[in-house]
């Protein structure tokens, strides 16, 4: 059984509230994500999952409350490469964008490298190795638009892995991906969590996926309804 190390907080959300116009999307929500967690965030559409995710990624600065990433306040957080992000893009990224798998994955190194720095041999080495890890080496020169939905999603995982992050945050990663590819995708995620000590935060509206894959669950509907192990969640709620 996978052991979750509860001693180190990676992401701390304290009393988070957020209002879009008149609507209060998040109300006084607190949640800690620990090293090694495989946390599923679940909740109804419009319940604030994506808003919460965008707040912890620094994309929505006008929230109330406090976010700490690796112990530092979000506003002063310098090490964004530690956070890999897999957006909900299988369905809505520009299919005609002229980038190969290799070029797309290389983008994952850019934030880590910093301004005014050219990519190094180390960058190339990491890019090659993460492409191999998601099993796309023979396709690396193909355009991203020519790939299947499942392959594209693996490219985005590889891009997130390329920054050598400590946590990966995924937003509905398998929307419009067929079940067989989904299985492979979640096997890869589990492997990353088990063997690479990578903390994973998976946002999904799919109860089956969350309860079968993750070790912890946070159920969100404007505020935190439940936070604890998936097993307890299954016993009590499902």
């Amino acid at each position: 059984m996978h052991q979750v190390d509860h001693t180190k907080n990676i992401i701390e959300l304290q009393n988070i509230s957020f209002t879009y116009g008149q609507e209060r999307v998040l109300n006084n929500l607190s949640l800690n994500i620990h090293l090694g967690d495989y946390l599923g965030i679940i909740g109804p559409n419009g319940g604030g999952k994506t808003t919460l995710l965008k707040i912890m990624l620094g994309l929505l600065p006008n929230f109330e409350g406090q976010v700490k990433l690796f112990g530092k306040d979000l506003k002063d957080f310098p090490d964004w490469y530690k956070i890999g992000y897999v957006p909900q893009k299988a369905t809505n990224f520009d299919l005609n964008f002229p980038a190969t798998i290799e070029e797309t994955v290389a983008m994952g190194r850019y934030g880590r490298r910093g301004l005014f720095k050219l990519p190094t041999n180390e960058d190339n080495r990491v890019v090659t190795s993460v492409i191999a890890e998601v099993d796309l080496t023979s396709e690396k020169d193909q355009l991203i638009g020519n790939l299947s939905g499942g392959q594209q999603q693996r490219v985005f995982i590889a891009r997130a892995l390329a920054s050598e992050p400590e946590v990966i945050i995924l937003d509905e990663p398998t929307v419009s991906v067929d079940p067989e590819t989904q299985d492979k995708f979640y096997k890869l995620l589990r492997d990353l969590n088990d063997h690479h000590n990578l903390t994973l935060v998976l946002v999904s509206h799919d109860l089956d996926i969350i309860t079968s894959q993750t070790t912890e669950v946070a159920c969100i509907n404007h505020s935190l309804i439940y936070h604890g192990s998936s097993e307890n969640f299954n016993r009590s709620y499902v």
């Binding site: 994309l59 964004w80 992000y85 957006p87 520009d94 980038a99 983008m107 850019y110 301004l115």
Partner: peptide
Amino acid sequence: KELVFLSFDEEAAQVAGIP
């Protein structure tokens, strides 16, 4: 590299710390 990343995926580029 920043221009390429921003053109492809502005949100992910911002998360990666690109100004």
